[in-house]
Amino acid sequence: MNILVCVKQVPDTNEIKIDPDTNTLIRDGVPSIVNPFDGYALEAAARIKDNAPDTKIVVLSMGPQQAETALCECLAIAADKAYLVTDRAFGGSDTLATSYILSKAIEKVEELENEKFDAVFCGKQAIDGDTAQVGPELAEHLGYPQVTCALEVKSEADGLHVYREAEDGKEVIGVKTPCLITFTKPSFDPRFPTIKRKIAARKAKIAQLTAAELTSIDPAHAGLKGSPTKVKRTYVPPRKEAGVVVKEETVEASAHKLFDLLSKAHVI
């Protein structure tokens, strides 16, 4: 099975600082990480490979040169090969233009690898933009069926079985390949890279795809000019306080505790 995992390098939001005057993110000195949801997508691919060692995992990212670090990290964790789509012409792309460029890049990677991908895995959203649009749009561009908010995927004879987070529990959806799946936070963390993979990743050459290679891209649909989204204003959403989890030894005790808390808050 061949799996392509899309990843994005994002600033570590635990470290995010906001410029109080301009209300924009201060990116200087903020460490970059692999978007955590993309990390879950990679782990899902790695788990398929654990059971089927001939699985091939390719990671693809679009971004500036320094996104190579994120791809290296993916190589160290589980990926077999990495591609970076990078070109000034692609800068300023909104989600529509990004998904369009990625769809063309995937076609190019398939051509270069001389193989088709059975599945494209994405994080459900990036933690910097939070739009959750690129995955679904990419599926449309590719003409693939899509399943969003997956927790885990199992490869079965009749296609992929996707365990999906739903409002009131878990759903299992069967999907034929090729398909696109977006991932949310499961109950487990992505694995740690091993030292051997880490050293190999450090030495690995990351293939770059620029506008010169991606000739099928219509410049009218790429970059800032090709992006219909116009950003009028950015602002920081108000911070939400963490919720309270009531977890006593018995259901009765929990109910009493909840009653106390609600009474104290004058809600009841």
């Binding site: 570590d12 635990n14 470290e15 460490p31 990480i33 692999v34 955590p36 990290e73 160290a76 963390d189 694995r191 740690f192 890279p193 091993t194 030292i195 880490k198 050293i199």
Partner: peptide, 29 residues
């Protein structure tokens, strides 16, 4: 240093050496 120490650990019987070098991994570990 990390490479050399890992090599030594593997020689001395470590089953593997796992690396945490990103903020989330360091925090978890």
């Amino acid at each position: 240093i990390v490479e050399s120490a890992s090599e030594m650990l593997l020689e001395e019987g470590a089953l593997d050496v796992l690396v945490a070098d990103t903020p989330p991994k360091l925090k978890d570990i």
